[in-house]
Write a protein that binds this DNA or RNA. Structure first.
Lengths: 343, 343
DNA sequence: ATGAAAGCGCTAACAC
DNA sequence: GTGTTAGCGCTTTCAT
């Protein structure tokens, strides 16, 4: 912060224009009436001085910072970057800025950032909750509106925007079983302990049980953190003596890992094995294989969450748990197109 | 901001602990000596009251907000999200938070956000400059350190972190010409008027001229904004009477569009046509085709930019224009693997 | 080792 | 219409 020239303040403007502080303040916020010629004088003084209002001082005074905090797992995950985009578009329309942080699924980082953001007096927060107790949030909740996205924390009275993960996974699994007749299905999940992962696994099992299929422990790989983990898990599955007919990955990161593993064994979906995943991977549209997915409306999740947050900041409404629909997008990797060809 | 219980202040803590304001302040910042038992008293008061320091008030006083501003084109573009990740990781290590904004390549949004961020007293900014005059930045530059990333603004004395776009595009084009013997090469660029786009186009042309190849106007589609634009441009190229042997897309967004267009015509790269692009698309690793690319170190760009920014914020160094290396990654889509197979 | 008072830049009462 | 005063929550002289 060296050789930073002192910025002119409202006081300098007042002196330059020969008016009082309050008059300048009035002009800046164009509140109440100011005589046009006075206003002109002030505007001119602002211009010649290059005055810019100090939002920190203003924020301290009016107790409004026009900032919200957003904590997601990892912005390089396209699903989250689309959510963030939805949030920012809403925030912009309200003249709010967004402080962004990545938690990397670590509760410690999540806690750190909620603390920092709160100290910075953000007016609301949108959080993708990591696994682990949310006890630490309780004192905060009285003071700052929070909305959870992607995952819910059921024991907490906090608004959330999610999708029906159990049902989505159930439907996707059912497609594999009913429309393709697969019975030997591998499952690769992301981090357990968060609702997305837990519920999807439940949905998967429900479909299996419903059709009398017993899960094969060897083909179930839970709690993977990175694409690399998904890659390894898939390799184990493929190289086991018990190769499945289909693989279900619980999110886009695992799907990426699984795809690489198939590549490794020169396996093609759906020719050699079927692959479906929760989460769409939109950018892969032009690439092969075309994945059959249970898609989530990422951008809309962000928009909804932001809208709910602003409503709460406005003092309206209290608790709102929104569950957005997922969509089964049948493309090639499940084997549907092969069936068609064979007919 | 309704039913927000008034947060306890340092004053309340002082009263509760029976000490002065300054003593509390000292404990919080653990500056100078405080008698252990006094410190204990204060700590206890902080705990019982649930006191959290107000960073806005602190920021106003010490003129330090521990925040930086980041303006990129679009966070849903994986290239930018990786850059942002690099920035945040450095910022976190310095205890700084990041205000993030998307400019959507619109100068108006860029201007708006630089103004807002400056008013919020961020201590530095990292910007992906949109096309258009950067005159508006001149007054700011004296007051706040700025680092440009991805693209440079040559007429401005501002630090930047970029790659050698001209050379990268030249090398990639040369690969097409020399190693594959292609002479009929289409070019699809993203938004013109920014150095990435302009320089890559120059590099492309230089390679052509060097080998005595005349660019074919019909196959050059400049200034596309979205993947959809790239999709359309590629369709025009394919459906022209003059189908090229290879397509060069100037960034990952255009590559995505081009891939979809190839799909549309059931064309496969490299079997039917070669395709190469500037920017790697890492997540496509498991998908086909495997794109031959000129890769940029996105995360490193972010890290470097943040490090330079912090150096400037510390008052060290002045101007620093860093040019990071790109890397030619030869995979399948250029036709190299086909050549191997044929041998 | 601790306290009193001033002030960061702004806005909200309340005058005039 | 406009100015004066006080104060947001904190840190920083300067005393003690």
């Amino acid at each position: 912060m060296k050789n930073i020239r002192k910025q002119p303040t409202i006081k300098d403007v007042a002196r330059e224009a020969g008016v009082s502080l309050k008059t300048v303040s009035r002009v800046i916020n164009n509140s109440s009436k100011v005589k046009p010629e006075t206003r002109e004088k002030v505007l001119k003084a602002i211009k010649t001085l290059g005055y810019r209002p100090n939002a920190v001082a203003r924020g301290l005074r009016i107790k409004k910072t026009y900032s919200i905090g957003v904590i997601i797992a990892d912005i390089t995950n396209n699903f989250y970057s689309n959510i963030v985009r939805g949030i920012e578009d809403v925030a912009l329309s309200r003249n709010y800025s967004m402080l962004l942080a990545n938690s990397d699924e670590m509760l410690s980082k999540e806690k750190l950032y909620t603390r920092v953001f709160t100290e910075k007096q953000i007016e609301g927060m949108i959080i993708v909750p990591s696994a682990g107790s949310k006890e630490y949030l309780k004192p905060l909740l009285k003071n700052v509106p929070i909305v959870f996205i992607d995952r819910d924390v059921e024991e907490l009275e906090v608004s959330s925007v999610t999708v029906d993960n159990e049902r989505g996974a159930y439907e996707l699994t059912k497609h594999l079983i009913v429309d393709h007749g697969y019975t030997k299905i591998a499952y690769i999940s992301h981090t357990m302990g968060v609702t997305t992962s837990d519920k999807r696994y439940e949905g998967f099992k429900r479909a299996l049980y419903e059709f009398g299929i017993t899960p094969i422990a060897e083909l179930i790989k839970l709690d993977n953190k990175t694409a690399q983990d998904g890659y390894r898990a898939t390799k184990e599955i493929i190289s086991s003596g018990n190769r499945p007919q289909a693989i279900f990955t619980s999110n886009n990161v695992m799907a990426l890992g699984a795809m690489k593993a198939l590549e490794y064994y020169s396996l093609e979906a759906p020719r050699d094995i079927a692959l479906v995943t929760f989460d769409d991977i939109k950018w892969a549209e032009g690439f092969r294989p075309h994945l059959t997915v249970m898609s989530q409306p990422a951008y809309e999740i962000g928009r909804h969450a932001a809208n709910i947050l602003f409503k709460q900041m406005d003092g309206e409404s209290k608790l709102e748990k929104v569950v957005l629909p997922t969509q089964l997008i049948i493309r090639d990797s499940c084997g549907c197109t092969m069936i068609k060809k064979n007919n």
